[in-house]
Amino acid sequence: MSQYSIYKISGSGVYIEGNDIDTDRIIPARFLKCVTFDELGDSLFYDVRFNEDGSSKHHVLDKPEYQGAEILISDANFGCGSSREHAPQAIQKFGFRAIIAGSFAEIFHGNCTTLGIPCVSMPAEDRQKMAAAVADDPDTSIIVDLENLQVICANEVFNVTMKASAREAFLAGTTDPLDTLLAQRDSIDAVAKKLGYA
């Protein structure tokens, strides 16, 4: 995971409607049979997109006009349920670079941040406007501006919110915390000793 600052992400968007979209729906359990995350993109939202015989249900993600969309728009409590990092991995491998939703489940949100996918929250009314805009014109450009906490879409500016520590990490290019954590070896060992764990 490379470490560089992310201030803005722009691209076209697609709206997947619904509150409480869980990670079992984002990536059904049978696709977790893998020892690497490499092949997950194709299985994103599989059961919503395909019939059991593999034929297409013509889900919005498979419509020609939304191919190449980079910003995923959805509703409240997105990513609830299982902690599987396979879910954000599949979203990223499919080609999404940012998620706008009503709110996010916490483990999912943390996983996204570590992978470098910014998650911003937007009120329902504004999401409806965004949904209408991408339905109207699938090529509409959307800019997710993390610095100013705004989303710009179809000549409108929407205010969004974001967990402060996540925003900080994107701006500083430290969304992957591992190096920072490893730098504290001595303090880690001291805590382990103090608690009798070492």
Partner: peptide, 15 residues
């Protein structure tokens, strides 16, 4: 509950 990247963090740093 944590994601796989965090499993990596815990394996590597126990934090």
């Amino acid at each position: 509950g944590i994601g796989t990247s965090q499993v990596r963090d815990v394996l590597a740093s126990q934090t």
